[in-house]
Design a protein around this nucleic acid. Structure first.
Length: 153
DNA sequence: GCCAGGATCATCT
DNA sequence: GATGATCCTGGCA
């Protein structure tokens, strides 16, 4: 069991968001999961190398999702390390691709329900004074403040 | 420590 | 044929 705290996320709104895979209601074989019900995992390959994990949050058909960008592990560090290789603790899951590797997430999770599945997210402490900043690694709607960082522990 | 550049391939147009 | 919701390495300070 690997367990940790989500410390960084980004929101992708769907229809109206040019950076979203659901922009203007686009549909193709690879993105069906993003239109699923809230709590559905949407996993896709990025740059041909990495996996990125999103959790669908909007109503069915909207395509709104949250990208999990970074995690602070506090249990199962050894398991994560066996998948990630020899890296500093804080680098085990401090990026979308690394996070998926550390947790063993791949396309097999795409379209699955989060609840009762292999990978789950639980609500925890609230993030007071939450402020959005610019999203990273995209080329459209770069200024939209939809990136959220957890307060420092 | 910081930055720039290249890797790499499924999926879409 | 082009394009990424990224990561890692090597060079330089």
């Amino acid at each position: 069991m690997v367990r940790g705290r989500i410390v960084e996320t980004e929101a992708y709104l769907g229809f109206e968001d040019p950076a979203s895979h659901a922009y203007q209601g686009r549909r193709y074989a690879g993105n069906a999961a993003i239109y699923g019900r809230p709590g559905t995992w949407y996993v896709y390959r990025s740059y041909g190398i990495h996996w990125c994990a999103n959790l669908v949050v909007g109503p069915v058909g909207v395509g709104a999702a949250v990208l999990i960008r970074a995690l602070e592990l506090d249990e199962g560090v050894d398991v994560a390390r066996s998948r990630r290789g020899k890296v500093p603790d804080r680098a085990l899951a401090d990026g979308p691709g690394k996070l998926c590797q550390a947790l063993g997430i791949d396309r097999a999770l795409d379209g699955r329900q989060m609840r009762g599945g292999m990978v789950q997210v639980f609500s925890g402490a609230s993030w007071p004074n939450l402020v959005g900043s610019r999203r990273i690694g995209i080329s459209k709607a770069v200024d939209w403040p939809l990136r959220f960082l957890a307060p420092k522990s």
